[in-house]
Simulated scan of single mutants.
Amino acid sequence: MQAFRTALRRNGRDFATEVGVSHRMLVKWETGGENIIPRPGNQAALDTMLATAGPEVQERFAALITERAAADQDARAEQLLRREGQHTKSPVDGKLMVPVEEGIYLSGPGNKPTWIEAYLIDVYPTTNADYARFVRATKYRAPQHWPNGKCPDSIIDHPVVWVTWHDAAAYAKWAGKALPTSQQWEKAARGTKGRTYPWGDAPTAAKCNVLDSEIGRTTPVSRYQSGVSPYGVFDMCGNTWEWCATETTHRRQELKGSAFTSPFTRAAPSLLNDADVTMSDNDTGFRCVSAARKGSALPSPVPSPTDQSGARRSLVTRGWAGLARPREEIYPGRGPAVSIPKSVVSGGCHHASGGDQIASRGRQHALGT
């Protein structure tokens, strides 16, 4: 409630008058937080106020809700920002993939027009659950942060880490896919028009898991609903660096995306970074791509959250009541939604190998630190 009033830039008495309640009732609402459910008439007034507010108000409100979700490590507000796209399930590893159409996009810090073929890219980074299936099927070595070679349940939906480029390439080969080139990765992150960040040009650190977020560990790959790319791809800023197929120099491959260990200033998808192929760390993972099926229709990028008045409106129509409801999370590649406790969603897990300690061995960041 307070977030909406702040977005409108109204004082308490004026806001209460517009909603049709006393100032004392408004104070009770704001103090009660998500435990307060307005009466239908008051909820209708709130819905109308947001629906008729200008886009700047709606954008401020969405930003405030997202920032609160990030600050509280509470994914329920983020869930309301979820948008659905056209997905394909990969036949081997079962991961959801989204198509990216052929054509020109603006590449690199200089936004150079670049043409690439159509392809499919994983909606989410490769998770520990995905990698566990690969390990079971191939007897490949498990990552070092899995106790006794077993993935802890608390991080099954987190991106797999402590994998070298060779490990990532081995998984991709098993799955019948490939690691993305840096150009494929960047287009899926920025769209065709050269967005600075997946969600747009606004430098909003609350939309991703970076050092500024002060979470200090990986988060579930579906956590940041408001930070998805124009194609609906998650975690293209923050959480973990991702290996690419593009070689920079002998035995060094590009990395994209930044991580929970990196400051937000290094999160832009256009920036360059690389590492030795033998490097592994607690903040480095990957995702895969595959060739687009011939004859299939490829959709255009979906609008950003700030272009979707319906999505913003749902935050109010479902907001104060909806945020108090139990949250359901989908573990990518594991079938139907299942209810999980908040401790799993926001608590994560400290890696057995040292977790939050940063070990940037072999990695040379382009911006330098």
Rank of each mutant, 00 (worst) to 15 (best):
V163G: 06
P203H: 04
K207S: 09
G176D: 05
A170L: 11
A189T: 03
W199P: 08
A188E: 04
K193P: 12
I156Y: 01
V161H: 02
W199T: 11
S154A: 14
W199D: 15
A188K: 07
E186F: 03
T204S: 13
A178I: 05
I156E: 02
D201H: 12
L179N: 05
W185S: 09
I155V: 09
T181N: 07
Y197V: 09
W174F: 08
G200H: 10
P180D: 00
P180R: 03
K187F: 00
S154Y: 13
A189E: 04
T192S: 15
W174I: 12
W199I: 13
L179P: 02
A168S: 11
D157R: 02
S154G: 14
G200K: 07
V160Q: 00
P203D: 04
P203G: 09
P203F: 03
A202P: 11
R190F: 08
Q183N: 15
C151G: 14
A205H: 07
G194F: 14
C151M: 12
R195P: 06
A169N: 11
E186V: 09
E186T: 10
A178C: 15
K150R: 08
W162I: 03
A188Q: 05
L179G: 10
T181P: 06
S154H: 15
W162S: 09
G200I: 08
T196Q: 14
K177P: 13
T204F: 10
V163K: 02
K207Y: 13
R195I: 10
S182P: 13
S182M: 11
G194W: 12
P180M: 01
A175D: 07
K193Y: 13
A175F: 02
G176Y: 10
K187R: 07
H158M: 01
A172C: 04
P159T: 02
Y197P: 05
I155N: 06
K150F: 06
P152R: 01
Y197F: 14
R190A: 03
C151N: 11
T164Y: 08
Y171L: 06
K177E: 12
A170F: 01
V163C: 04
V160C: 00
A178W: 03
P198Y: 00
Y171E: 04
A206V: 12
C208H: 01
V163H: 01
G176V: 05
R190E: 02
A168W: 00
A168M: 04
I156C: 02
C208F: 03
A202G: 13
A206G: 14
